[in-house]
Write a protein that binds this DNA or RNA. Structure first.
Length: 778
RNA sequence: GGACUCAUGGCUCAGUUGGUUAGAGCGCCUCGUUUACAUCGAGGAGGUCGGAGGUUCGAAUCCUCCUGAGUCCACCA
């Protein structure tokens, strides 16, 4: 053996050895025919045969088959995202669990996959288009979808090959992509079921619309940023009103005051005349407790279609008020209701209108930019969110929330990680209905069909045969002989059905007069079904064999987006919890405890670490002394320390190996009893820590016991002739097994090295499938 | 405003049914290389476990309050 452990020359070789064994695939590790396992035998007859063949080469005799299923569904990384430390963290922890359970003899499946990451990916692609001088509006939706598909394909191997570099022992033969046809089919089935259960509805609500991204977002995807704004005080009939957004006045339908506000009692219920610059209008004065009499002047103008609070207020007073108008369009510009301000972007119109109000002597004062308020912004591009009315599809969450709280109460699912179980409950209890419509093409198109004959007011935008852009009402377009439904459907970019439009839910076109909705599902709607969607579309029998899955492991920051949705959809569709345990790992921070981000320039590229210190060092540094749900800072020194540990292990093994070559005259069983007692204690402790999800602690225990007990004490005792060789060899074998889930490459390459130098000394040929040590060993 | 989390040697963190002299890594100091490993070894300095009370035979650990830090959510035109 070399004097140093060289990760560069071993890792690829070892990974190939594992892959070639076929044992990432649990079918190849199933017990050979037995009487009481008929179902599994039939389901996996082919692979079992293959497995039997493999087991000849690899000698699985010593393997103890518990056959207990253990399944982890990998959180699918974005198909075309390069790996960051967060990915390395989940690979390290999940692979640790998987290898541990595989060694325990469990029927162990780690099912990998990749995510289409709807909006994220479409944006990256649009940036690329922009560089080419094009935009998404140059293509019909089908063509655009295909172009993004091809683009994702080009990069799809990146994520997988990088995870392999980290040693991930996932069953790649079962890998899934969120847009695989059978996954899409399951997602559509789910939607259909939700619709049949009465949980889907279409409603005109104010959505969080990003004019730049051109799509609505769910409430979870919105940031609130502190901003300094101007507060404009407008003359508003007999009132003075403070507002940050004078440009919305054309959409006002009322003034609201607090019901107990003495100043305004006489106006409540009256109509007042207001000068709107472009016209004079009468609006009603209403009373609502929502108004804070202390703020501004205690009177608020109400613009229902451009402000969430105003919208709710309007809902409460609907019967007394006229129908509101939308004055800002989806491109973020004012529309025909704004008279001469039409076409201006809202923030520019604001300045113009303020100026004109001042000229007209309607502006009493304007504060400087010192009014602190919070503005909703797009989490992606930071553009100010425009609350806009849009007919969207919503999912009623209440029945699913109740079922989820129920399984939490019954402890059918356990959450590991610093109070995140409480956070989950808090989320569930305050959850609003889920807007699942997205105005992008990169995703699963909603299986919603509109009969154009019954919905003549549908507006469409499409490219005609010559690539020319056409838009208008469907009924009018169809009167022209040039256009048929079919070619409109083919060139379709966008379809907007008015509120109240009739639709059917169907996977296929219900007839020739139908056009399909152009919106796609929120990415999280499909990934929320991931545990059952993957297993139902995996090998036959996988769902029955592995569902509910064992552990869902992920960073805590996607709790509301993903974990909560998986629980809700999983329990609603399958009737069972999708997983029995949730393990949250913390975020990796830099040495100062700051979040890593590209803009701060403090990111660590895991591949560079792998290159310099080895995949094992990276894995160990991330796991050691980490705690569920708590963040962890790492720096270069941590990788170095872990690399040194791998080298220490290598050299201790080298010592044992050299020791075995000379006959050992001192190899009696001196101190044998104490040695094995201690060794057994370590086995018990580490196994318990792993069972209890104390991964950081288990790693710490192994680090210290191996280095400071086994090396510093036991090896030194042996040199002095006070501890037998048998003990040392046995001890090394146990440590290699215990450490394998953490540092698989180093341990396996030592195992193979010992194999080569001392055939028949070890209990099996491949460490990866060697049984986990039990304290009954000696 | 609401919720959650954290506070342990210079730095980063372990320490979960309360139990002997509170641990590790990195850093620091002294010494050591014909020895498995200098990606190492031997030894050492360094902590009133944020503060104040309480429960207990016994508290870093449980309870209350306070202080400080962070995260998430909700927010007034």
């Amino acid at each position: 053996m070399d004097k140093r452990y060289d990760h560069n020359s071993t890792e690829d070789k070892i990974y190939k050895l594992w892959e070639k064994s076929g044992f990432f695939n649990p079918d190849n590790l199933l017990r050979k025919k037995t009487t009481n396992n008929k179902q599994q035998i039939t389901n996996n007859s082919k692979s079992t045969k293959r497995g039997a063949q493999k087991s000849k080469n690899w000698d699985l005799k010593s393997r103890n088959f518990t056959q207990k299923p253990f399944c982890v569904i990998m959180p699918p990384p974005n198909a075309n995202d390069p790996l960051h430390l967060g990915h390395a963290m989940f690979v390290a922890i999940e692979d640790m669990m998987i290898r541990y359970h595989r060694m325990l003899g469990d029927d162990t499946l780690w099912l990998p996959g990749t995510d289409h990451a709807g909006i994220e990916t479409q944006f990256v692609f649009e940036k690329k288009l922009k560089k080419e001088g094009k935009s998404r509006f140059n293509f019909d939706r089908e063509a655009l979808y295909k172009k993004i598909w091809d683009y994702v394909q080009e990069n799809s191997e990146t994520a997988i090959s990088q995870m392999k570099k980290l040693g991930a022992s996932a069953d790649w033969s079962r890998s899934k992509f969120t847009l695989d046809p059978n996954i899409v089919n399951t997602v559509l089935d789910t939607f259909k079921k939700l619709h049949e259960d009465g949980l889907v509805y279409r409603d005109l609500k104010l959505v969080n619309y990003c004019p730049k991204c051109g799509t609505a977002f769910s409430e979870l995807e919105i940031n609130h940023q502190e901003k300094n704004s101007k507060l404009y005080y407008l003359k508003y009939g007999p009132f003075t009103i403070a507002t940050t957004r004078p440009e919305t006045i054309f959409g006002d339908i009322a003034v609201a005051v607090h019901p107990d506000d003495k100043r305004y009692q006489k106006y409540i219920g009256q109509e007042i005349e207001v000068n709107y610059l472009i016209e004079k209008r009468k609006v009603k004065v209403i009373a609502d407790k929502y108004v804070d009499p202390e703020f501004g002047t205690g009177a608020v103008k109400i613009t229902p279609l451009h402000d969430h609070n105003d919208y709710e207020l309007w809902q409460r007073h609907k019967n007394k008020l006229e129908l509101p108008k939308q004055v800002i369009n989806h491109n973020g510009r004012l529309n025909q209701h704004a008279g001469k301000y039409r076409g201006l972007k809202s923030h520019i119109a604001r300045e113009e209108i303020a100026k004109d109000l001042e000229t007209a002597n309607l502006l009493t004062r304007t504060t400087k930019n010192d009014y602190q308020n919070k503005v909703s912004t797009c989490y992606r591009c930071n553009t100010a969110i425009e609350p806009l009315p849009l007919p969207q599809f919503f999912i009623k969450v209440k029945p699913m929330v109740e079922k989820t709280l129920n399984i939490l109460d019954k402890k059918q699912v356990k959450i590991h990680g610093a109070g995140h179980d409480k956070i989950l409950r808090h989320w569930l209890k305050n959850l609003k209905d889920w807007n699942i419509s997205r105005q992008i093409v990169w995703g699963i198109r909603m299986p919603i069909w509109y009969d154009v004959e019954k919905n003549p007011d549908i507006e469409v935008v499409f490219l005609d045969k010559n690539g020319g852009k056409k838009s208008g009402k469907i009924s009018e377009l169809l009167q022209d002989d040039k256009y048929q439904i079919l070619n409109i459907s083919v060139g379709l970019q966008n379809l907007s059905a008015p509120m109240g439009a009739k639709y059917i839910v169907s996977k296929n076109s219900p007839g020739e007069s139908y056009l399909q909705e152009t919106d796609t599902f929120d990415t999280w709607f499909s990934s929320g079904q991931w545990p059952f969607a993957t297993l139902q579309n995996s090998k036959k029998g996988d769902f029955e064999r592995f569902y509910p899955t064992s552990v869902m492991e992920t960073a805590y920051d996607i709790l509301p987006f993903w974990i909560m949705r998986m629980l809700m959809l999983g329990v609603h569709i399958t009737g069972k919890t999708p997983f029995r345990d949730v393990y949250f790992h913390g975020l990796i921070r830099d040495q100062k405890g700051q979040k890593m981000s590209k803009s701060k320039g403090n990111t660590i590229n895991p591949l560079e670490v792998v290159d310099k210190y080895g995949a094992d060092a990276l894995r160990m540094a991330l796991i050691i002394r980490s705690s569920a749900g708590l963040d962890k800072s790492v720096r270069e020194a941590d990788f170095r320390a872990a690399r040194n540990f791998c080298n220490k292990l290598w050299n201790a093994s080298r010592f044992i190996s050299m020791n075995l070559e000379i006959s050992d005259p001192k190899s009696q069983n001196q101190n044998g009893k104490e040695f094995f007692e201690k060794l057994n204690k370590i086995i018990t402790i580490v196994s318990k820590q792993l069972n209890d999800f104390k991964f950081g602690l288990a790693t710490d225990t192994l680090y210290n016991e191996f280095w400071h007990w086994y090396c510093d004490e036991c090896i030194e005792l042996n040199k002095q002739g006070k501890l037998g060789q048998t003990q040392l060899v046995e001890g090394l074998e146990v440590f290699l097994k215990l450490l394998h889930p953490i540092i698989p490459f180093t341990t396996e390459s030592i195992w193979q090295e010992l194999q080569k130098n001392h055939p028949n000394k070890l209990s099996s040929k491949l460490l990866m499938t060697t049984p986990w040590p039990t304290n009954n060993d000696k």
